[in-house]
Write a protein that binds this DNA or RNA. Structure first.
Lengths: 217, 217
DNA sequence: CGGCAATTTGAACATTTTCAATACGGGTGG
DNA sequence: CCACCCGTATTGAAAATGTTCAAATTGCCG
């Protein structure tokens, strides 16, 4: 996304807007060593950062069980991290430096003021966008557990009032990182164990408990 | 992300900001039938929509080869689709209705005006965020092709000047949806075929051609 | 220069994919 | 209103692929 690896203030979102000349932007610069944690998932989201130099790794513990954390994105110079602070009290990801880093950041209140009054169109759209982003679960893959387990987790996470969103099998398979045949088999398995009740179009949850067992929770 | 399935104007990003009472927002409402395509990947991104009711599926053809499209996200009432129009001339995804839909939308120029002057902080941050979002490749999964192929594709997509980002194997494995052992083997395979040259910390591309062959391009 | 943790390798095993055939269900037209 | 038809979903069996677990290696840091 960025041609050079180091971001000048004149190329930075913040720098550009404030018309800053090199190094004069009002955000605070901070150096971070490799492997250092910038923030933890669940911590109060009290700062937002721009990456000037280096690479950041975002990881998230699966929202349902607290265990296995999985890397889901890398962020590079120019990118913003910690934006979820705009819409929720805590960080949605863990951010870790996988190279030495230069960051520029500010506390949430500061950003809040800087962004201008809430209720302006740009700000409202920004917030909605961040909400959308941090709500997207990373696409599942084989190493996330067996097909049955992934399906069960998805059902736990996405179902409302005992019914899963009506999504064609082909599409759901894609979202779960498997082929339709495997999805079909997994669903049959869950039905066999009494966790769900599936027709061609709808999936209803028969036993929340059984489903959670299948999900490994 | 939304408790009810139908979004009132009073709950909508646009509605809220404009203080609209029911149905009075200046965006145009549109009904969409199930399976209808709202926009195609690559088309001029000339409109942005808010989902009022229903579910939208976003799919993307892998950026490297034009073939296999994969579903990568679903969007629900309250979400915005087509935001990439703010930062690039064409849509980054295909959007398809997987239920009957009610949308509210406006042309890009309109949104542009509505969002206020470019160069305001909120707007700049919004644009940067959208840029980040549409740049994120969906996490790979087993059904996307063999491990070697997925690795090769990632290398093609992420390398700059013949070198891949310096990422620990463990992390890269996660991003590619495989376990470290499999990554190791895949990398060895690519090295054997002369496509890359790997040390523990860096991966350099030895032959762009060979790599593309391994990627199936 | 030595120790250690990350990585690589090996072999057996489990799972998923594949390919092909069948069943099912919804929509359509009579 | 019912029967037929088509496309989607399911099932089966074999083969390919990835995972697991354990052991050996290697490169990097102090």
């Amino acid at each position: 996304m960025q041609l050079t690896n180091v971001l000048e203030c004149s190329e930075c979102v913040v720098g550009k807007v404030t018309g800053a000349v090199a190094g004069r932007c009002h955000f605070a610069t901070r150096q971070v060593a490799r492997d250092e944690i910038i923030f933890e998932q669940g911590q109060p989201a009290d700062a937002i950062w721009v990456i000037k130099d280096g690479t950041v790794l975002l990881s998230r513990a699966s929202s349902v069980d607290g265990t296995s954390v999985r890397a889901h994105a890398i962020r590079k110079p120019g990118d913003l991290i910690g934006l979820e602070g705009l819409i929720r009290p805590t960080y949605a990801d863990q951010a870790r430096a996988i190279t030495p880093l230069t960051l520029c950041g500010a506390r949430r209140e500061h950003i809040d003021r800087w962004l201008g009054p809430p209720g302006t169109p740009a700000r409202a759209v920004l917030e909605q966008t961040v909400r959308m982003m941090s709500g997207d679960p990373p696409r599942a893959a084989g190493s996330d557990g067996s097909a049955v387990r992934r399906l069960a987790r998805w059902l736990v996470a996405e179902s409302e009032q005992g019914r899963a969103p009506a999504i064609p099998r082909q599409v759901l398979a894609d979202l779960l990182g498997m082929v339709p045949e495997t999805l079909s088999r997994s669903l049959a398995e869950l039905a066999r164990s009494g966790a769900v009740n599936a027709t061609r179009r709808h999936i209803v949850i028969a036993s929340d408990a059984a489903l959670r067992v299948a999900a490994g929770l």
